[in-house]
């Protein structure tokens, strides 16, 4: 049996760049999914203060990060001294994808790992 992917959700609390309806809907679906997950207020803010928790995320795979553009997330982690591994990390973009698409992606992964 494969390891259940860890899910990390970013609420991007300090800016309005992620559509509010998308992030609220994704959060709602996650809270109703019956799955354990980690939610952070803002990955940028954590990276700025080099929160050691990020290193814990970077060293655990498989992990699915629900946030924004993958290139931004990758280098945010790197800037915090917690570079993400090349494999085992999947980044879902709430700036461009719908809540349905993201939920399906998370659900698909869960099904595959079951």
């Amino acid at each position: 049996m494969k390891t259940q992917p860890r899910i990390v959700y970013c609420h991007c609390a300090y800016a309005q760049v992620v559509p509010a309806d998308v992030k609220q809907d994704v959060l709602r679906r996650l809270t109703e999914s019956g799955t354990s997950f980690d939610a952070v207020a803002d990955l940028c803010e954590m990276a700025a203060r080099r929160d050691p928790w990020l290193a814990g995320v970077a060293c655990q795979e498989p992990t699915q990060i629900v946030a924004c553009y993958p290139r931004a997330v990758k280098w945010l982690f790197s800037s915090a001294g917690a570079p993400l591994p090349e494999r085992g990390i999947r980044i879902l973009n709430m700036r461009t994808e719908s809540a349905e698409t993201i939920a399906a992606a998370l659900g698909t992964a869960a099904d595959e790992d079951a």
Partner: peptide, 28 residues
Amino acid sequence: FAMMATLLQGGYAVTSVRTGSRTVPEGA
């Protein structure tokens, strides 16, 4: 949902533990 949204908007990181025993987030 309301609890998590409120805490996140307040700047806190929240781990929702539904099943299993993982109560301390790795790396924390």
